[in-house]
Simulated scan of single mutants.
Amino acid sequence: MVQSTQAIADDRLIVGLDLPDRAAAQAMVELLGDSVSYYKIGFQLALAGGLPLVRELADAGKKVFLDMKLLDIANTVEKGVESALGLGASMLTIHAYPQVMRAAAKAAQGTDLTVLGVTVLTSMNDADLTEAGYSVTVSELVAQRARQAQEAGIGGLVASAEEAGAIRNIVGPHMALVTPGIRPAFASADDQKRIVTPADALARGASHLVVARPVLRAQNPREAVAAILAEMR
């Protein structure tokens, strides 16, 4: 059966539950109801008792993007990926180092879990990379990690939509490309340095968009979601 334009757009929007505790996250999920089918759980919520919410959401028919940005020795990464599988996550982030990506790909092989390599955080620009000791630009490092991700066999990447087009040229049409730092027309940039609108992100090759503050801080979060979906369509 062919999905409707609305269903496709809804499945590509991931709302970040960047909230202080599980109760606040559950309240937001209840408020958003059937307007959102995909949620992100990151460090803030996970470390505040939010990990069991991954299974709750999965059991309720929602998808969960577990944004843990794993970076460790290969064996530890493999075990972490196995734990994410046990929770019912649909996506899991790791840092896009070759050894880490190979270990994660091995652990996720044959499952429905999409492992995503984080290229360069959307809060960082060329000056930030220089300060961190890199001698390449953001675009150069993103391209290098995209090639390495494809070689490692992971399911996708996390990158700014500014780099989405270049990444698509490297990895082709099938890998997932998740773009945070999305700011709809009605929202402010906050602390993000490499941001675009929902429509622009999709046009550049993104497969999924992550939006948190423009929804969580809205006077009416359901209306904010509807506005974002309208921009995406």
Results as ranks from 00 to 15, higher is better:
143 A>D: 11
136 V>I: 10
140 E>N: 04
157 L>C: 03
159 A>S: 10
163 E>M: 02
138 V>Q: 09
131 E>P: 03
130 T>P: 07
146 A>L: 03
140 E>P: 06
164 A>Y: 09
135 S>Y: 13
150 Q>R: 09
161 A>Y: 00
145 R>W: 05
140 E>C: 06
136 V>Y: 02
145 R>N: 13
132 A>R: 15
163 E>P: 02
138 V>M: 14
139 S>I: 00
149 A>Q: 06
148 Q>R: 10
133 G>R: 01
134 Y>S: 08
158 V>L: 08
140 E>W: 04
142 V>E: 00
146 A>R: 04
148 Q>V: 07
149 A>V: 04
154 I>S: 12
143 A>V: 11
136 V>S: 09
156 G>C: 06
161 A>N: 01
149 A>C: 06
137 T>D: 02
130 T>L: 13
163 E>D: 14
153 G>Y: 01
146 A>D: 07
146 A>Y: 05
162 E>Y: 12
143 A>Q: 11
151 E>C: 05
165 G>C: 10
150 Q>D: 14
146 A>E: 08
160 S>V: 06
162 E>N: 15
133 G>Q: 07
135 S>E: 14
130 T>R: 11
162 E>H: 12
157 L>E: 00
146 A>W: 02
162 E>L: 15
137 T>M: 04
164 A>E: 10
130 T>M: 14
159 A>I: 03
152 A>D: 07
142 V>H: 05
141 L>M: 10
141 L>I: 03
137 T>P: 00
164 A>K: 04
141 L>P: 08
144 Q>Y: 11
161 A>D: 04
139 S>T: 06
131 E>D: 15
155 G>N: 09
165 G>R: 11
138 V>G: 11
